[in-house]
């Protein structure tokens, strides 16, 4: 793993507390990263649909989605990602407080790398940083849990 590389991560998450914890976890794991955070679902959907690869604007290394978002659900955003040719290959991790089994089944059909239920324990949350670090380091394509 190239530690000097700065990973471009797209985070769709309406809860700043969770974004804060995510940063904290990635830092603890020693990942060099840059976050693009979109808090609103509709905004995220628009971003994903209109996304175009260009010289500066490269495909993100990883997308982290929450499923419970105001105005638009995570599933719609994930579907849009898979439909956009310039984003279709992005590994996606679902990070959600929802544990509804039918939602999980639905997103797993859309080739997600990990499905993570937001832990209520600090140590467990920080462990997410290591999981993501491992994902970014692997050369393989999208994984399913």
């Amino acid at each position: 793993m190239n530690t000097s590389k700065i990973f471009d991560l797209l985070v769709v998450e309406d809860n700043p507390a969770d974004v804060y914890l995510l940063r904290h976890a990635l830092q603890k794991a020693g990942v060099n990263f840059e976050l693009t955070v979109i808090e609103d679902g509709a905004e995220a959907l628009e971003f994903v649909r209109d996304y175009k690869k260009s010289g500066e604007n490269q495909q993100p290394d990883l997308a982290i989605l929450d499923l419970n978002l105001p105005s638009q659900g995570g599933i719609e955003i994930l579907t849009a990602i898979r439909k956009n040719h310039d984003l279709a290959d992005v590994p996606v991790v679902i990070l959600t407080s929802s544990s509804a089994p039918h939602e999980r089944t639905q997103v797993e059909k859309l080739h997600i790398s990990r499905f993570i239920t937001k832990p209520a324990d600090l140590a467990d949350f920080l462990q997410i940083g290591n999981v993501l670090k491992e994902l970014l380091g692997s050369e393989t394509g999208p994984l399913t849990v």
């Binding site: 832990p119 600090l122 140590a123």
Partner: peptide
């Protein structure tokens, strides 16, 4: 109710740590 509770729980831990 789980969500805010999770926040309280995690951030109180952060505080302690």
């Amino acid at each position: 109710l789980q969500e805010p509770l999770r926040m309280i729980s995690i951030y109180s831990q952060m505080l302690v740590n």
